[in-house]
Nucleic acid binder design. Structure first.
Lengths: 212, 212
DNA sequence: GGCTATTATTGGGCTGAGTCCATTATCGCA
DNA sequence: TGCGATAATGGACTCAGCCCAATAATAGCC
């Protein structure tokens, strides 16, 4: 309905030159109704990605507590991206190089990186028994979400004839995962063991700081 | 001038409830003049951080080409954050928990993460001789920039009596750096050697894809 | 089917960030 | 002092987003 109207108009006029009034008129509803379905105009650009992030959250919520955190994130993220691009390429990717639109596409895309990072951070927090705003949790979550964003970026750049997003995401996650294992698995193991031994690098100084 | 007026007004009224008209009136200039100095209202929140990113870019531009990329990024970033908080805590951090402001603080903060990531990606690209939108370059840049953002987040959360940002950033960068060494240093070594041997994990599949 | 309560949509108005352009003021230089 | 360049200003405008009262549609019950 609204999304279909938006697809047509963005392709005809670009995102920037399409008003919410035009979209709702084509969809046959009132302009005010738009905001019953979307928080902002830019939400239209990321419908599939938002659904993907929701699905990632759902997948991660089904992971048993205390298991290997990193591989669970990786596996869930890859399951989610496996289906992307099959039905419809996210609208944002069709607008990235269109004049006047890049800034808002990027800005709203970043909001998705942040959202995905929140989902991952919440999961890591649960798995390794640390607060959600712990430095290890946040650094790892940002790195993983940033890797997925990098995969999207390169996938979009490769254009028609590119391979599946899955391959890009798999590679990107591999790049950041090697070292994160060193931080996260000892933390998870400490959780499983039920004691408070800190992992090698980071836990020590942040624990000392927070303790005083 | 404008910044001082903004500092006062944000603390009096919160960011969200302060208009650009109020800021420019207090500063004794026209509202339109505001946009000669700032692209957007939210730029006021990040003056110090933006200066820091500019300084990071300048520091990285002075690194000789072809050296160890990752430690250069780490060293430069840590030099930059060393001075943060000494003069004035970024305004954004005083507004983070203020009602109605969190969303925009976060959103404009993300734009800074992206900018920092761009600076790092450009540097890594130069050091290892890969395109700026290469998957390894982007993943690493996002991870490093995400770590610095995580450090900011946790530093802000720790509130008064916290340690220097330097320590947080140092820890965060350490978390993500371990594995990135595995990807970046072989790529830099390949550059130095003047051949096109791919690094172990990622280069192979992305080179094959791009080549065809 | 009729009635009532609830929910959804609409219309109208508004704010304020951001844009644009012509006019005015200021600055720098000879 | 005069001229050209630059900066600031005033005025108008767009449009996303917000708010609220009025209207329309829907759901449930008898």
């Amino acid at each position: 309905m609204l999304e279909d109207a938006a697809v047509e108009l963005f392709l005809e006029n670009t995102y920037a030159l399409t008003t919410i009034e035009q979209i709702t008129q084509r969809a046959g509803v009132s302009r005010n109704t738009f905001f019953n379905y979307f928080s902002a105009k830019s939400d239209l650009l990321w419908v599939e990605l938002d659904a993907g992030i929701d699905r990632l959250a759902a997948e991660l919520s089904r992971v048993p507590a205390g298991g290997p955190a990193l591989s669970a994130v990786r596996d869930a993220a890859l399951r989610v991206v496996y289906d992307v691009g099959v039905d419809r390429v996210p609208l944002a990717l069709t607008q990235d190089d269109v004049m006047g639109t890049r800034e808002e596409t990027r800005s709203s895309g970043l909001a998705r990186l942040a959202r995905r990072s929140d989902v991952i951070a919440a999961f890591l927090s649960r798995q390794i028994g640390r607060p959600v705003d712990d430095l290890l949790v946040l650094s790892a979550a940002n790195a993983l979400s940033g890797a997925i964003s990098a995969a999207w970026t390169v996938w979009a750049r490769d254009g028609i004839g590119r391979g599946p997003l899955f391959d890009y995401a798999s590679d990107a996650l591999a790049i950041v995962s090697i070292g994160l294992d060193a931080g996260l698995e000892p933390a998870a193991a400490a959780r499983m063991a039920g004691n408070d031994i800190d992992p090698v690098i980071t836990g020590e100084s942040s624990e000392e700081r927070s303790g005083s």
